[in-house]
């Protein structure tokens, strides 16, 4: 039941276009806001295993010209201590995803690589999370261990985490052929809310080719099956 006085009263609150634009700008700024770099965490004491989701499948979209595809890669330690990159068949091969959980954030290991002809760079963007990086110390083709806590998952012992320091990048990440290196581990990070890993995350990839053309693809990573989560001792 409407009331004229109340309608008139509220109708007086009439935001103008400038206000509308200003608030929209605020929204976009908040969305783009970067998180502070995570402080150094303590070394792992014990692992808490959380069974959660299965790593989703990448979107493979072959195209006639300027073809590219987004693939997932796993870094595996070989018997001689060296590491090799193996493309992960995320559709047919059961795969255990992994996560590191500390007081503030959850870091999900993903390794996305863009392969194709004439690729100049790739911009990854996600609304659901932020990107974080780790760089693996290598010497003579072998992983430097020492006091570094590392996480290996799956039957093939895939390296999923190297230490507990993460470089938080933000919700956009640009990689080119020079920066998509073998010692790079990529993570999707999200706020630690009761230690729950999100069921899915969406990542957009915009590829720029040498001739200036751009193409876009979208990945939906599904974390609704088995996985391994490691919590920091504080958790």
């Amino acid at each position: 039941m409407k009331n004229r006085k109340i309608i008139r009263a509220f109708d007086a609150i009439q935001p103008d276009k400038a206000l509308e634009a200003r608030v929209l700008n605020k929204i976009l700024q908040k969305r783009r806001r970067k998180r502070p770099v995570l402080k150094t965490a303590v070394s792992l004491a014990t692992a808490a295993v959380i069974c959660l989701a299965m790593f989703g499948a990448p979107l493979l979209t072959p195209r006639a010209d300027n073809a590219f595809s987004i693939k997932a890669y796993a870094m595996e330690q070989q018997t001689d201590g060296s590491v090799a990159l193996r493309e992960v068949d995320l559709i047919n091969l059961p795969h255990v995803w992994s996560a590191y959980i500390d007081d503030e954030n959850i870091y999900l290991n993903v390794r996305l690589k863009c392969e194709g002809e004439n690729i100049k760079s790739v911009d990854f963007f996600t609304d659901d999370a932020f990107f974080a990086k780790q760089y693996i110390k290598m010497k003579n083709g072998k992983i430097v261990t020492g006091n570094v806590s590392m996480l290996y998952v799956g039957e093939s012992q895939t390296l999923a985490m190297y230490g507990t320091d993460f470089e938080i990048v933000g919700n956009t990440l640009t990689l080119d052929q020079d920066t998509m290196t073998d010692d790079l581990l990529l993570f999707l990070g999200t706020e630690n809310i009761e230690g729950l890993v999100p069921s899915a995350m969406t990542v957009h990839a915009a590829v720029t080719f040498d001739d200036g053309e751009t193409r876009e693809e979208t990945l939906v990573l599904d974390f609704t099956d088995e996985g391994v989560g490691i919590k920091s001792p504080a958790q």
């Binding site: 509220f10 609150i13 935001p15 206000l19 200003r22 608030v23 929209l24 605020k26 929204i27 908040k30 969305r31």
Partner: peptide, 23 residues
């Protein structure tokens, strides 16, 4: 915005609240 203004009672806070709602 109208709803937020009625709760927050000032334009600045109403803007922030409205922005967060749409975010």
């Amino acid at each position: 915005y109208r709803v937020c203004f009625s709760y927050m009672k000032n334009a600045a806070d109403a803007e922030d609240a409205a922005a967060d709602a749409f975010l």
